[in-house]
């Protein structure tokens, strides 16, 4: 079971190679196959996640959640998507049409690209970049732009305020978010995702870097605009924030992107702090899956418990708490590494 998916990839590679293509073309074809596989994986998971969110929210609130469409309501999202696609697609008269439309398509791109370097199991990533973690950080920060495009293009005051909030929030929280990874990078000395996972053979980084993990959870939650940091959407203040004006299929894109982002965040967390595919007995990809969904459940738990934070408190939390804490964590990690090296060198341990 361990190499189930790797073996399938090998089979497909052999099949393509059987057409008599040269090495480069086979490599390219394999990248495309893997890309499609990841795309399917993400979309399927979005379906599961939306269902899970609604059920989990229901359970927290002492109700059942969707349980009518299909067995136990499992087909609810399918129906929702069909409903959304069949609705009238409205572009507001005063909107900046190109920006407005482009934002809806672009919102999914960075999200999908993040998945390219995530190791779903041993040897199960599309590309194992040397700069994997750096790539993730760089790509995910593009989302800010697209959200502002949506807010600006809609030409709606609520959307605009939502877009401005998104920029302020996501740019600020990027800093502690990046810093939370620095401790891990110092420990492994690599940005490569597979190396980071392998470095957690003995002990997960959540044990060595608990503070960084907490900072990551908070900043990551703010990065993907989920409660209690869902200010850019802020239903009670801004109706629906940056996607107030979006309808039908375009709204579905934003809706699905939100959940794809959530899953991406959980996948990064599982890889960097929870030991990725490492784990006893079960196959690696299943371990990864379990860890990822545990993180997702945690995020949902937090979302359905806490009220929304205020704009100025959001900034206070970032600049006055998270940033100093994550900086201190880096210093302590640096000292710790040196002390450890000295201890080893002196032969005390």
């Amino acid at each position: 079971m361990e190499n189930f998916f790797v073996n399938i990839a090998g089979l497909i590679r052999d099949l393509i190679a059987g057409f008599g293509l040269n090495e480069t073309l086979v490599y390219l074809a394999m990248v495309i196959v893997k890309f499609v596989a990841v795309l399917v994986f993400v979309l399927l998971n979005v379906v599961v996640l939306v269902y899970m969110e609604r059920r989990v929210a229901g359970f927290f609130q002492e109700r059942l959640g969707p349980n009518r469409v299909g067995p136990q309501g499992t087909l609810q999202l399918v129906m929702d998507i069909f409903k959304l696609l069949s609705k009238e697609d409205i572009v507001p008269a005063g909107a900046d049409k190109f920006v407005y439309k482009a934002a809806a398509y672009a919102i999914f791109v960075p999200t999908i690209l993040v998945y390219m370097v995530i190791p779903f199991g041993k040897g199960m990533n599309v590309i194992d970049l040397n700069l994997g973690l750096f790539y993730i950080l760089a790509i995910s920060s593009v989302t800010t732009m697209i959200i502002f495009m949506a807010g600006w293009g809609s030409r709606n005051k609520y959307s605009l305020v939502g877009g401005m909030r998104a920029i302020a929030q996501m740019v600020s929280y990027e800093i502690p978010y990046v810093f939370s990874f620095l401790g891990v990078i110092m420990l492994t000395g690599s940005l490569k995702m597979s190396t980071i996972v392998e470095a957690q053979q003995g002990v997960w980084f959540i044990v060595l870097q608990p503070i960084a993990f907490i900072v990551f959870l908070i900043a990551g939650n703010a990065e993907i605009n989920r409660g209690p940091f869902d200010l850019p959407e802020g239903e009670q203040e801004l109706v629906a924030g940056y996607h107030t004006e979006y309808t039908a299929g375009r709204f579905a894109m934003f809706y699905m992107a939100e959940y794809a982002n959530l899953l991406a965040m959980a996948a990064i967390g599982a890889t960097v702090f929870l030991g990725g595919w490492q784990g006893p007995w079960l196959p690696g990809w299943l371990w990864f899956f379990i860890k990822m969904y545990a993180l997702v459940f945690g995020q949902m738990w937090v979302r359905w418990t806490f009220p929304r934070i205020r704009v100025d408190h959001l900034m206070h939390l970032n600049w006055k708490v998270l940033l100093p804490v994550s900086l201190a964590n880096i210093v302590v990690t640096g000292i710790g590494i040196k002390v450890y090296q000295m201890v080893r060198m002196m032969g005390w341990w």
Binding site: G58, F59, F60, Q61, E62, W301, T305
Partner: peptide, 9 residues
């Protein structure tokens, strides 16, 4: 909230 998560619906 987690207490209510497991309570009867």
């Amino acid at each position: 909230t987690i207490k209510h998560f497991f309570s009867p619906k």
